[in-house]
Amino acid sequence: MNIFRLAGDLSHLAAIIILLLKIWKTRSCAGISGKSQILFALVFTTRYLDLLTSFISLYNTFMKVVYIGCAYATVYLIYMKFKATYDGNHDTFRVEFLVVPVGGLAFLVNHDFSPLEILWTFSIYLESVAILPQLFLISKTGEAETITTHYLFCLGVYRALYLFNWIWRFYFEGFFDMIAIVAGVVQTILYCDFFYLYVTKVLKGKKLSLPA
């Protein structure tokens, strides 16, 4: 464990908690893409199946359980409890255009052709594009609540910090996972446009609104 990975995990945890609290406190999931949240629940489910097969550390197990629990709780709040506030008209990204190619790629490019490994690879690839429905929704509505931008910022920063974690681990431990690194770079690049808007607008106290 290094400072970048710990900071990344805490940023990821913060994002998940911020989103859950935003929906719970405001009793509304306006501006939130339910499709992205379903993709994240799928990412955690396919990646953390090793909860059943191997124990790495209390920290590892605890975080995985929290991530999975919060992901499904968020999906439940969006599609069941606060369904009336779900913005289905704008949350129209065709997720099958993400899941199918990612599923195919996981079969073609992986470290080992075993079920657990292919599911892990699928989850790594899926996570790198899972935020697209959310970014698409914001581009369609042309704006985002400030709390939602903080959620997105923490979520984007987490994988950027993981990139530094992988540099650190390659340098000090010789650890190196090309699949995770390439997917992590793609994932972070997808946030760059948002990062620019976040820094130039939200941090200056303005509302995040896109040129319609």
């Binding site: 990975r5 995990d9 990821h12 090793d50 191997s54 790495i56 550390s57 590892n60 975080m63 995985k64 991530y67 470290h111 080992d112 892990w120 993981y162 974690n165 390659f170 010789g174 650890f175 190196f176 996972d177 090309m178 995770a180």
Partner: peptide
């Protein structure tokens, strides 16, 4: 490059 694919990351 020494490639190790241990799954100790979240």
């Amino acid at each position: 490059w020494d490639h190790i694919n241990q799954k100790d990351e979240l």
